[in-house]
Amino acid sequence: MSNTKSAKNSYKNLFQQTEFTLGVIIVLLFVIASVFTDNFFSMYNITNLMKQCAITGVLAVAQTFIIITGGIDISGGAITGLSCMVLALLQRDTGMNFWLTLVIAIIVSIAAGFINGIIVHDFKVPPMIATLGMSTIIRGIIKIISNALTVSGLDERILNMGNSSIFGIIPTLAIIWLLVALAIFLVLKYTIFGRNLYVIGSGINVAKLSGIKVRKMFLSVYALAGLLYGIAGIMLAARVQSALPTGGEGYDMSAIAAAVIGGASLAGGRGAIAGTLLGTILMVLINNAGVQFGLNTHVLEITSGVLIVFAVTMDMLKNRKKA
């Protein structure tokens, strides 16, 4: 039946379109920047580009599955900063085993995410407000434990990780980002947990009546996001080679933008890791190429803002058409 084919295609198109369009734009931007600027297509800059992607990229992956459930998390940057600070303090001030410091930084982040989940599910606070509050609380905590000062004295292994790369071109940080993305991609595609995220995002009552343990899901989702922020915090320490009290600030917006540009819908129920990866690359690429073209960084800030508004608007229009 030709009918069968067309419906199948139109459904597939829906998902592929975003990713295809993004891919084309990224390639175009890449080519243009390579041809028209001197420094863009250099080993140094390409490596740098990937490093820039890596941390936002991990946050964007977390944001994607939270957005799929119909939520949003703007405490990601703060938790990343906390993880980074905890790691730096432990490594500077205690003789603790290196691996243990990593584990503690991650556990602290998971705990913060878990509390987000409790506030969102049990106290029924809208995710935006819950995580905004959490973000503010955590920024305060960071400043208290660090006396609002930059902390250096990180372990050699962390410092080296920030500068190391595989085959001399792919930075370790980018590898971590891609591994995290791959893991979450597999979770979304192959697990009950992944399916349940989409069901919850498309309607909480439907999820409940289908026997999904909604509370457990919410707590797990936000805790899993915490885990990713914990990893991002370690990456941040490696990249900056120290821990700043403001570490991770501004990452949330980029992460949300990357997810939404990549096709995640703030109304919930839709989103995919591949799109988010491309969204992340596009966000970073615009900035990086913009700098190479000599554009004012403040102008680029405006560009990023416009891009976010544009992506969300497109999402809203799509939803309106559906309804």
């Binding site: 399916r195 069901v199 498309s202 309607g203």
Partner: peptide, 23 residues
Amino acid sequence: EDGLALILPIKINVNMNSYDMIS
């Protein structure tokens, strides 16, 4: 409101409450 995930495909809707049986 309670029965269907309207924005998801039939495939997920049909399997929604029995994924444990095929995993």
